[in-house]
């Protein structure tokens, strides 16, 4: 019981803090790459705290409900994962968290926000099959859908059997982190868009809710990278950390070298090149007959 409580505390309290720090580091490193000093590393947390005490401006009430649903389902994703639940189910919960955000952007009469939402839908369409295939790959290499079995002692590192799926996941992750060239739905950078996308009509505490959900998601995405190298052993954990750090740098470099691409281009890229890559890996596993 106490173990469950500790796990829950990690999922609910520690995760967003780590996520916020990663986001802060992201801004700092990006700034340094562009020859700027950059904000303090804790800036994302300051931003959220400030947003929370601002005037609660809103357009309609449905919008608020969707923001809460976005956060709740994002938290649920992390909780299910840390409790060692079924990965596919967790993935569906995560998809619904994203759908809530999409609906939040759609339910107001602002064309910009709606366009942002529609692009986000396309992005979801682009990466969701890749994630499902990743889970299938994990099943084929570990013989179980349960997250707890993947991290169990003695499990061999996923990266060894799923190298192409890992690359595919990097692409999917870039979309979810809203990194260029995949940041069509909403970007962190002012130079990419004149009017913000899906979160345009959110302000004050409601925007803070979405930001917090984003911290959860950042943590989640990097945690998955980490688990590509089986943990529960210090040496492995170090490799996992290094992997996550490598992914972090990769996304920042990616973000700074590319300009955004058209949404449909991204869908085609993901569904043709990345999808084939991941599928190749899966077929390879089928041929190996691990199942």
């Amino acid at each position: 019981m106490s173990e469950t409580i500790i796990k829950l505390l990690i999922a609910i309290v520690a995760a967003p803090l780590v996520g916020a720090i990663i986001a802060g580091l992201d801004r700092k490193v990006t700034a340094r790459m562009q020859g700027r000093v950059g904000p303090p590393i804790l800036q994302p947390i300051y931003d959220v705290l400030k947003l929370l005490i601002k005037q609660p401006i809103f357009l309609n009430r449905v919008q608020i409900l969707y923001a809460f649903m976005h956060l709740a389902f994002m938290m649920l994703t992390l909780v299910l994962l840390i409790l060692g639940q079924d990965l596919l189910l967790t993935l569906f919960v995560h998809a619904f968290a994203t759908i809530s955000l999409i609906l939040g952007g759609m339910c107001v009469r602002s064309p910009y926000s709606r366009i942002g939402s529609q692009r986000k839908t396309l992005m979801l369409l682009a990466y969701e099959p890749i994630l499902v295939i990743m889970v299938v790959g994990i099943y084929l290499s570990q013989g179980s859908f349960m997250a707890s079995d993947v991290v169990a002692a003695g499990a061999k590192p996923l990266l060894l059997s799923l190298p192409l799926v890992f690359i595919a996941y990097m692409m999917a992750m870039a979309i979810e982190l809203q990194k260029s060239p995949f940041d069509v739905a909403s970007s962190h950078h002012a130079h990419q868009e004149i009017v913000k996308g899906v979160t345009l009509e959110y302000a004050g505490p409601f925007l803070a809710i979405i930001e917090i959900a984003h911290f959860y998601e950042v943590f989640l995405l990097f945690a998955v990278v980490y688990f590509f190298w089986a943990p529960y052993n210090l040496a492995n954990a170090a490799v996992g950390m290094a992997l996550a750090a490598g992914a972090f740098l990769f996304h920042i470099v990616l973000d700074n070298t590319f300009a955004r691409l058209p949404a449909m281009w991204i869908v085609r890229f993901m569904w043709v090149i990345v999808f084939l890559m991941a599928t190749t890996n899966i077929i390879w596993l089928y041929r190996l007959g691990t199942i």
């Binding site: 339910c107 009469r109 709606r114 839908t121």
Partner: peptide, 12 residues
């Protein structure tokens, strides 16, 4: 998503 988005679109 498109359909749900459309029917929940309201002004205040």
């Amino acid at each position: 998503a498109k359909w749900i988005g459309r029917i929940t679109t309201v002004s205040y």
